[in-house]
Simulated scan of single mutants.
Amino acid sequence: MENTLEYYYHYSATQGRSWKKEGKPSIKTIQLKPSFLPNGLKPAKPKPATFYGFNDTCPSGTILIERSQKSDYFRSHPVDEKTESGDYFAIIETNTKGPNLFYGASARMTTHLFSLLPTQVSASSIFLFGGAHGPRYDLNVIEAGWHYSPNEYNDYVPRFFTYWTRDGYSNSGCGNLRCPGFVRTTSSPIGPGSPIKDFSVYGGEEVSFSLQIYKDPSTSNWWFLLQGESIGYYPRELLPNMDGGIDKIQMGGRVFSFLKDPSPPMGSGHPYYEGRNKAAYFTQVQLIDPMSRLYNIEPQFLNFISDLPDYYGIGDYHLANPNDGYVFAYGGLGGFRK
Rank of each mutant, 00 (worst) to 15 (best):
M1Y: 14
M1D: 10
N3I: 07
L5T: 09
Q15K: 08
K21P: 00
E22M: 09
K24L: 13
K28L: 10
K33P: 00
N39H: 14
P43R: 15
P43A: 14
P46H: 04
P46A: 01
F51R: 07
G53H: 07
N55L: 07
T57S: 12
R67K: 15
S68V: 05
S71D: 13
D72P: 06
F74W: 08
R75G: 03
R75S: 09
S76P: 01
P78K: 08
E81A: 09
K82N: 12
Y88F: 10
F89I: 03
E93L: 00
T96A: 09
P99R: 01
F102L: 09
S106Y: 10
S106M: 00
M109D: 05
F114M: 09
S122Y: 03
S125D: 11
I126N: 07
I126S: 12
Y137E: 11
D138K: 15
D138M: 13
N140G: 09
I142W: 11
S149G: 07
S149Q: 07
S149V: 04
E152R: 12
N154L: 12
P158G: 05
F160A: 05
Y163E: 07
N171W: 06
G173R: 08
N176E: 12
G181T: 05
V183F: 06
G191T: 09
G203S: 11
L211D: 04
Q212P: 02
P217F: 06
Q227A: 05
G228P: 08
G228L: 01
G232D: 04
G232C: 01
P235V: 02
D247W: 04
G253Y: 00
F256V: 05
K260I: 06
P265Q: 04
M266E: 11
M266K: 08
M266S: 13
Y272I: 00
E274P: 03
R276K: 13
A279R: 03
A279Y: 02
A280I: 08
T283C: 08
V285I: 13
L287I: 03
P290F: 05
P290Y: 10
M291E: 15
L294K: 03
L294V: 04
N296R: 08
E298P: 02
N303A: 11
Y311P: 01
I314P: 01
G315S: 13
G315T: 12
Y317S: 06
D324N: 15
D324M: 14
V327C: 15
V327M: 12
G332W: 02
G332Y: 10
G335M: 14
R337N: 14
